[in-house]
């Protein structure tokens, strides 16, 4: 019995690993094979000359440029909302909060982190409906609403990475500032935050990736199939993940479907690159921590 276990277990381990790898390779390979031929200038710019399109002189039809611009605007705005609130909350948790305060706050952040993104999207949508009904009829789902909802979605990531990056600093570093007369705030601002920056940065990059790939939040809060390059915070917009979803259900011909493959490939590449970047920053962090001892 034990003998057989000893043989079967590695077999099972290798079997499941290979199954998983084969599946993921199939997905990546399939996207590459189908998506690569679509990757050219017209995929992004349609029939518009690239320079004119980039300078927003001429609208792009049938290209991904508006969706790419939309995603960039969305990510930048969402992260811009989430960073100040998230980093400040993280600082509070790591440096000020008493055990009691932490016990009260922690479950709230854990729940926020665990909420399905469609629920966060539904919240954004409900708030918009509420404000539209009671305050201003001009308010509709739009870039602003989406970016705020996405900011809520990634807020717990930023809070937690800030908190851990600060808490993981060795006591020796933690005491250096105060030993020289630094006040609590000075210590945070001049010693602890700069030291924790790589950790916080890698968390922010993961949050960017999350904003770039999320579809459920934006489909409820203002992403549409055709809106052109976003012109205002209060306008609807296009975004890569929503475009992929939309094409998969509504494509009319093979050419349109090909742009879907291209978009999926681009989004996958963006997310993997962001993840790699965060990984690399964190690795540099570990190496530096080791060099310190």
């Amino acid at each position: 019995m034990r003998r057989r276990m000893g043989k079967l277990l590695p077999l099972f381990a290798w079997g499941s690993t290979l199954t998983l790898l084969a599946a993921i390779m199939t997905i990546a390979g399939y996207l590459l094979v189908e998506g690569m031929p679509a990757l050219d200038r017209t995929l992004i710019f349609g029939d518009t000359p690239p320079l004119a399109a980039l300078l927003l002189r001429r609208p792009v039809f049938g290209g991904l440029l508006p969706a790419i611009f939309g995603t960039i605007a969305l990510v930048v705005l969402a992260v811009a909302w989430a960073i100040p609130l998230g980093v400040a909350s993280g600082i509070y948790l790591a440096e000020y909060a008493t055990t009691t305060a932490k016990r009260l706050l922690d479950p709230a952040f854990d729940i926020l982190a665990g909420l399905p993104s469609i629920v966060v999207g539904l919240f954004g949508f409900a708030v918009t409906v509420f404000l539209n009904r009671h305050f201003s009829a001009a308010l509709h789902p739009c870039l602003l609403v989406s970016s705020l909802a996405l900011a809520f979605l990634v807020l717990p990531y930023i809070i937690r990475t800030t908190q851990t990056a600060l808490e993981e600093l060795p006591p020796a570093i933690r005491m250096t500032g105060p030993a020289l007369g630094a006040s609590r705030l000075q210590n945070i601002r001049m010693v602890l935050l700069p030291q924790a920056l790589p950790g916080i940065a890698s968390g922010v990059i993961l949050a960017i990736g999350r904003c770039a790939e999320d579809t459920a939040v934006i489909m409820l809060t203002g992403a549409v199939a055709a809106a052109g390059v976003p012109r205002s915070l209060l306008s609807q917009y296009e975004a890569l993940p929503f475009y992929i979803y939309y094409i998969s259900a509504q494509y009319t011909d093979a050419k349109e479907l090909a742009t879907g493959y291209g978009a999926a490939l681009i989004l996958l590449a963006i997310c993997l690159a962001l993840f790699g970047l965060a990984f690399w920053i964190r690795k540099g962090l570990d190496r530096r921590a080791l060099a310190h001892f």
């Binding site: 020796a172 570093i173 105060p178 020289l180 630094a182 006040s183 001892f293």
Partner: peptide, 20 residues
């Protein structure tokens, strides 16, 4: 006042701890 106290009572640690 802790900041004044710690400016008057300096400390050197076992491991040198220069800031980066």
């Amino acid at each position: 006042p802790l900041d004044r106290l710690r400016r008057r009572v300096g400390m050197v640690f076992q491991m040198p701890n220069p800031l980066p």
